Amino acid sequence: MTNIRDRGTEVRRFIIDNVQNHPSDIVKVTVKKFGCSRQAVNKHIQLLIEEGAITETGKTRNKVYGLAPLAKWEKAYQLPSNVTEDQAWREDISPLLGSMPANVLNIWHYGFTEIFNNALEHSSAAHLLVTFQKTAASTEITIDDDGVGIFKKIQAALGLLDERHAVLELAKGKFTTSPANHSGEGIFFSSRMFDDFTILSGGVFFSHDFNEKEDWILQSEGNTSGTCVQMELRNHTARTTKKVFDKFSVGEDYGFTKTVVPVNLTQYGDDNLVSRSQAKRLLVRIESFKVVVFDFAGVTSIGQAFADEVFRVFARQHPEIEITAINTGSEVKRMISRARVHDNPM
């Protein structure tokens, strides 16, 4: 009996996890996955409908299924305000999340309070809107302010030519416009903890998907004011805050000492990474880390000058930093090898 009950729970969990991607053929997909009958799968679906976990529209063979929102909520905060991120978490968000695994609640506690605090202290906004939606599969929280815009603020602080360059600095980590009050770690670690983490600000859209190798930076349509941060996390995941922190720590020194830099954020559109100036843009603030991993996912080629600046000139100037490259195609690997050979002539 226990095995039958466990299998039923597994089937329903699979339906919940996959119904969004298979709204019209979830029955077929589930039958194929578990080798059970359509009748058995339909019984599980009906149970989920009765529990309010999924919805059903259409008739007979034209039925379409989807996740039902278990909770929807939003609240506007006037700024400046006496509200703190911990107060907003304790009074507003935590009760909405309800009973969840401790590791999931810890991720939400970290991510929400970091992003909410960032909006309170750095956005110069007059209004802050928080929206919340929870389904049986995942939870999504959006924090939207009408302030100066995070990328524009970083652009001004570093004197960058383009606000898109600010995304690269966030992706490296350890950047803050207020170093006396913040470590610059909050947004970086938040972006690595969630299944999906996006920032829309000004004319730039940045997205980090936990399951994808590449971060995405896109030119948004129009030019939005303020900053909108959206975080989504499955309600059941084995991920923990500790696992994410450990990934960017080295040795016994439990600190933010390692960074994985998505090199593709240095290029825009069809730009080729060929110049020393592009390499120097990539290398800004890299000296604050002990281990630097350059991730070349999405980069098919680099120029000789670019490779030389990163893997010979900078590496020679900073021998204390361990520099490695991952996801390198044949052309990229060849240029890196060439630069390193020139640094160590026979």
Rank of each mutant, 00 (worst) to 15 (best):
G66I: 10
K72Y: 03
H208S: 09
L120E: 01
R281T: 06
T135M: 04
H122G: 02
G203Q: 15
G251H: 03
C228I: 08
Q39R: 13
N327G: 08
N327M: 08
N21G: 14
M1Q: 02
I54M: 05
E121G: 03
K75D: 01
A238T: 09
Y77D: 02
V291S: 13
S124V: 03
N344G: 03
R12L: 07
M100D: 00
D253M: 09
N235E: 08
I143D: 06
G8L: 06
L160S: 05
G98A: 04
V31L: 10
F132M: 08
F197W: 07
T241P: 06
D270L: 11
V130L: 05
N264F: 07
K290L: 07
V204K: 05
T198C: 12
E232W: 02
P101G: 00
S249P: 05
V11C: 08
S275W: 02
H22A: 10
T241L: 12
M100C: 09
V130W: 03
L218K: 09
L233Q: 08
D246I: 00
F314M: 06
F314I: 02
N118M: 07
Q304R: 14
E121L: 12
L79T: 01
E163A: 14
R316F: 12
V19L: 11
S249A: 15
H165S: 14
D162A: 11
S81G: 10
R12Y: 04
H127D: 09
I150K: 00
D308G: 06
S301W: 03
Q78P: 02
V299N: 10
T135Q: 05
T300F: 11
D253P: 05
A136F: 02
T240I: 08
N42C: 10
F245H: 07
L97K: 09
K242H: 01
A305K: 12
A76W: 13
E214S: 11
R192W: 02
F256K: 02
L158N: 14
Q278M: 11
H122K: 09
V313Q: 13
R13M: 10
S94V: 04
S249E: 13
P80M: 09
F188H: 12
D343P: 01
H318F: 13
I199S: 06
H44R: 06
E51H: 13
Q230V: 14
T328L: 05
G226F: 09
V274G: 13
V284Y: 10
K59W: 05
P179L: 08
